[in-house]
Amino acid sequence: MTEPLRLSKRMSELGLCSRREADEWIARGWVRVDGKVVSELGSKVLPNQRITVERQAAAEQSKRVTVLINKPVGYVSGQAEDGYTPAVALIKPENRWPDDPSPEQFHPTQLRSLVPAGRLDIDSVGLLVLTQDGRIAKQLIGETTSVDKEYLVRVEYTKGGKLPDSDLKKLNHGLWMDGKPLLPAKVRWQNEDQLSFTLKEGKKRQIRRMCDMVGLKVIGLKRVRIGRVKLGDLPVGQWRYLAADEQF
């Protein structure tokens, strides 16, 4: 016998929306199960039942924006902490990249529920995604994400000489963190003091901790790509909208 699931969880699994959006839509009477409106939060469904949403939900979802920012050092990704400013504070008209090709007009309501889809340390720079769209957040930070992220990392070897090839291999695969083996990464030299890291996971301060394990000190760290979306020429401290035809 197949177990029933919470309707909001099932909608998230199907990629229709985030769980929070699902609860909003259910409460508004915008969700149907096998053609019948279900408006009670916590309702359960079987996996074979057909879920549809009203046009208003799709229209509201299409209004939700996703913003790409080139985060400077000194800003935190999420909530304000220890007196540091969150990156969302940079999302204002005067900081919008003048070369942003998107026709989207800025409006203060876009700042509501604009949350980071993934974090970037306070002392790291580069591509940070802030979104109102639960589907994008799930795609980038959900447990089953397959979207990789690329970083350029300036390093200094602390043990004298040069990093041995065996340690470069360990950075690619073989290190453990928090009691678990890390997923395979792609780590290669870009030039004599800069490595490129491509990861499919994002443990807290992962790259800095990986480098530390093999005697490398991180001097600078910049995220340059998330999936198919690149930082490109976006200047530090400026932002642009994710274009309608761009996908991670």
Rank of each mutant, 00 (worst) to 15 (best):
N172A: 09
L111F: 02
E246N: 07
S77H: 06
P101T: 04
S62G: 11
K203E: 10
L16S: 09
W30S: 14
D167A: 05
P164N: 09
W97E: 00
D212H: 10
V229L: 12
G15H: 04
D165S: 11
P93S: 11
E24Q: 15
Q190V: 15
K92D: 08
G29Q: 08
D165A: 10
S113I: 03
A89F: 06
E24C: 08
R228V: 01
E201K: 09
W189F: 12
G179I: 09
R50C: 08
I26E: 07
R135S: 05
S166I: 04
V88D: 03
V155T: 03
R64P: 00
P98K: 14
A117Q: 08
L128R: 11
D82P: 04
V147W: 04
A27Q: 14
L7E: 15
E192D: 15
K169L: 00
P98T: 10
G126V: 02
L199F: 13
L163Q: 12
R19M: 13
S43M: 11
Q247E: 11
V187M: 10
I219A: 06
L5N: 08
L183A: 11
V65G: 12
K162F: 07
K170D: 00
A27D: 14
T109C: 10
Q105G: 05
V65Q: 13
D167W: 05
G118C: 05
L199M: 10
E156H: 13
L114E: 02
